[in-house]
Computed example of a mutant assay.
Amino acid sequence: MTTVHPIRIGVLGTHSTGKTTLLKRIEMELRAEGVTVARTGRLGKRAAAAGLPKMQHHTAASTEWIITQGIADELAAAAQGAEVVLIDRAAHDAVAYFHAALEYRGEVPPRLERERLLVLASTQLSKYDLLFATVLDQDVPVDTSHDYDARFRHLVDQHLHRLLDQDAIAHQRVTSAPYSQADAIDRAVQHCLKEALV
């Protein structure tokens, strides 16, 4: 497969809705076809390691760090020759977490701050070939090793899908249903293989 620029496939969604698992399965299928794949991720954990707040404690600073670090990771993957870059937490994901954290805490940030972060995330939209947004299914049990706040998790899901819909951002919703997961994987793989032939 040869492309001038790598294909970028992003996934967004609240925590423990299958984002990483979905990308791992896409990666496995593409590697089986001989495609060079890079996968970004672990931005929340890396932000925390850098001393920044996360989850319901997100701030404008931690949101900006996650967006810009994600951009840097994508650029590094492309520079290292990846034909496909799989992005765990595309830019709007961080904005949704920020908005959810503010609502959770009952805070309202300055309008210009909110707009600045949204513009920053929006600059990345043209780079994504495909975007998948996972949908929260509260009937699916969460790993008990994670101390997740159910209300915050639900708020992230609400804010994410509201952002995508309000700005008419092209994306495919992915539910917890096996057919929905399989459809997303097939679409991603077929898109990459089709681009390889162009």
Rank of each mutant, 00 (worst) to 15 (best):
H161P: 01
A91H: 09
Q190D: 11
H191M: 14
E33G: 02
A150P: 15
L197P: 02
L118D: 12
D143Y: 08
E74R: 06
P178Q: 08
I87N: 01
T36L: 14
K54R: 14
K24I: 08
E115R: 11
T17R: 06
R111I: 12
L75N: 14
E33A: 15
E195G: 07
C192F: 03
H146W: 14
T175Q: 03
F132R: 04
Y148A: 01
I26L: 04
D167A: 15
E107H: 05
K19E: 09
L125P: 08
A101E: 03
A76T: 11
Q80I: 05
R111V: 14
D129C: 01
I185N: 02
T63D: 03
M28C: 13
D186Y: 11
P53R: 03
L22G: 13
P178E: 00
G13C: 09
Q138W: 06
S176A: 15
R31E: 15
L23D: 10
R153W: 07
H171G: 12
L130W: 10
V135W: 07
S126P: 10
A168K: 14
K19Y: 05
Y179F: 13
H92T: 05
L52M: 02
L22E: 12
R105G: 11
L22N: 10
H159A: 11
E103Y: 01
H57F: 04
T17I: 04
S145Y: 06
G51I: 01
L86H: 08
A91M: 07
S145V: 02
T14A: 06
I71Y: 01
D167W: 13
R151Y: 00
K54F: 13
I87Y: 03
A133V: 09
A168E: 14
L30M: 09
E107V: 11
P6R: 07
A79P: 00
I87A: 03
H161L: 02
R42G: 02
P141T: 10
L193A: 12
I67M: 02
H58W: 08
A72V: 05
T2W: 09
H15Y: 13
T20C: 03
M55G: 08
T144S: 15
L86P: 05
D93E: 05
L160P: 10
L23A: 08
K45H: 14
I9S: 07
F132I: 04
Y148T: 04
E27Y: 02
D73R: 04
E27N: 12
R162E: 15
Q80L: 02
A48W: 04
V142Q: 11
R173I: 02
Y97W: 06
Q56G: 03
M28Y: 13
I7N: 02
D157N: 13
D147Q: 12
R162F: 05
T40R: 00
F152S: 05
